[in-house]
Design a binder for these strands. Structure first.
Length: 499
RNA sequence: GCCCCCAUCGUCUAGAGGCCUAGGACGCCACCCUUUCAAGGUGGAGAUCAGGGGUUCGAAUCCCCUUGGGGGUACCA
């Protein structure tokens, strides 16, 4: 049995994209399922667009998701670990130069001196003639003397790979047999720029060969590039890996998921309070299914069940609603202490934003868990849900105070008598179970609907109509602050309310 | 334009010739629970399996065509 080596090769030209995360996940799943090796390689040859900030965002994001790799740079900007180091393409330049030299020596590639103007003129002419764009091969047959003359002119030669003739076929693990006629590849393509820097199609093959990658698992957008890669593998004298092209993640309009039409940055999902378990679970189920009716799965359970050849062929629309549902499932499954740890930064963010006035201690947060857990679609929703617990002066919309069936006078009377009842229970016995019966009795005594009474109290102490259960909320607030808020609400009702 | 890929409820999917009068999940609707909101439970609407031809005793499943959608066509990755 072969030892599988797979890789994720992100380009630090933008923040970690949901699609990259999914590709990373599938590589991870495959490596772990087969007991193989999972490599991370940074493809930073586009120096104009690459940055260390993006590199950090990508590595941190993948770590956050729990998709650790066996070889590659652990931390942005730092050296990599593994037998094939370095794992950052800008540090591997000599390797590409050497490979380019070999291809040139074998005449598998040749220097091309065409100017951008010539090239775009060619393209324009082809377009006018309604022909597919392709390199015309102006420099393909240059003699050594002609090449020397052009170099002497000071023209920088790019290196073009000879595409040749024939059909390239391969067996894609998810798609089956795929064939391309080399004639449709667009002619000889550039592998090294005029300035000597190598291009993607070239570096990816040189590195996959050097790093002994056995299975290339990537997005479907690379399917049409695969014949170029295969040709390069052959020219370099290296056996071709197996290829598996994953279906794309789509915008709601079924085009390739993009920043323009969807939220694509993993960091944005983290900031909203999605948990890694849910994101991983959701992403794994985009384009793959267990074949059973299991839906909520941990990453280990997914590793166990994952099979690359069960991956779907068709693209999948990113459905945020389903992700939110899974997020709720996972929030409810988390260990309480873990959940407190994860919630804390979101409460801190509320404080930093000035939406609350102080930071609750961990044990307070923890005691709240039973009533807030099932009400949090995301961790970031905690402020909206119970932020009222940690503000000094609650702002209440007076009109909200009066239940639909009541008027201001009744509300005032209701709150005042409720205040009396609550005060009587005293601080020692201020518990949910003790608060409810007397308040219900109060409603009955006045022939009020309990819902109306409870709603008036709810709004008075929280400022909202949707909250966790009322009595748990009162206990969380404490006797003193409960009474204080009731007093303020009663005062606000003075002189009636417009509605 | 050319090349390649794809096609089951709105969405994610089960389905590898008879088990399918097509199953599950999200979302939606109703009911139950209930002090609000959730969560949970029960039920419902929702797919002539893109369309048309074949193959076969039998096709969502195999083949062909059409249509539709997507991706790729750079001295980007």
């Amino acid at each position: 049995m072969t030892h599988h080596r797979v890789r994720i090769a992100p380009s630090p030209t933008g923040p970690l994209h949901i699609g990259t995360a999914r590709t990373a996940l599938f590589n991870y799943l495959y490596a772990r399922h087969t007991g193989g090796t999972y490599v991370l390689r940074l493809e930073d040859t586009d120096q104009a667009r690459s940055s260390i900030e993006f590199e950090r965002d990508i590595l941190d994001g993948l770590h956050w998701l729990g998709l650790g790799w066996d070889e590659g740079p652990e931390v942005a900007g730092e050296a990599a670990r593994g037998p094939f180091a370095p794992y950052r393409q800008m540090l591997r330049l000599p390797l590409y130069a050497e490979a380019a030299e070999r291809l040139l020596a074998a005449d598998a590639a040749y220097p091309c001196y065409c100017t951008p103007e010539e090239l775009s003129a060619d393209r324009a002419a082809q377009e006018a003639a309604r022909l597919p764009p392709r390199y015309v091969g102006r420099c393909a047959g240059l003699t050594t003397e002609e090449r020397a003359a052009r170099s002497a002119d000071g023209r920088a030669g790019a290196l073009r790979f000879r595409v040749g003739k024939g059909v390239v076929a391969f067996d894609d693990v998810v798609r089956g047999r795929v064939e391309f006629d080399v004639a449709n590849l667009g002619g000889d393509f550039v592998i090294v720029r005029g300035d000597g820097s190598p291009l993607y199609h070239f570096t990816v093959v040189v590195d996959d060969a050097a790093m002994e990658i056995t299975d290339v698992i990537r997005g479907e957008d690379h399917l049409s590039n695969t014949p170029k890669h295969i040709l390069l593998f052959r020219a370099l004298g290296h056996p071709e890996p197996r290829f598996a092209h994953l279906p794309l993640i789509l915008n709601p309009d079924r085009t390739k998921m993009s920043k323009r039409k969807s939220q694509t940055a993993v960091s944005d999902y983290i900031e909203e309070g999605f948990v890694r378990e849910a994101l991983v679970n959701y992403l794994a189920l985009l384009g793959w299914a267990t074949g059973t009716e299991e839906e909520v799965l941990s990453i280990d359970e997914i590793v166990e069940r994952f099979e690359l050849d069960q991956v779907h062929k068709g693209g999948a629309v990113f459905d945020r609603g389903r992700l939110e549902w899974l997020n709720g499932q996972w929030i409810r499954r988390l260990d309480p202490d873990d959940l407190v740890d994860r919630l804390r930064p979101f409460v801190a963010a509320e404080l930093a934003a000035g939406r609350i006035d102080w930071m609750p201690p961990d044990d307070e947060l923890r005691s709240l868990l039973p009533v807030i857990g099932e009400r949090l679609p995301t961790l970031g929703a905690i402020g909206d849900l119970v932020g009222f617990l940690w503000v000094r002066d609650l702002v209440i919309e007076p009109a909200l105070l009066v239940p639909k069936r009541w008027d201001a006078v009744t509300t005032k009377q209701g709150l005042a008598s409720a205040r009396l009842v609550i005060a009587e229970t005293g601080p020692v016995s201020f518990e949910a179970e003790e608060l409810e019966p007397p308040l219900r009795a109060l409603a009955e005594e006045h022939a009020w609907k309990v819902g109306d009474l409870f709603m008036a109290i709810r709004v008075a102490v929280t400022g909202r109509t949707a909250t966790p259960p009322l009595f748990d909320t009162l206990v969380a607030l404490g006797l003193e602050r409960t009474l204080e808020r009731l007093d303020r609400a009663i005062a606000a009702l003075e002189g009636g309310v417009e509605r």
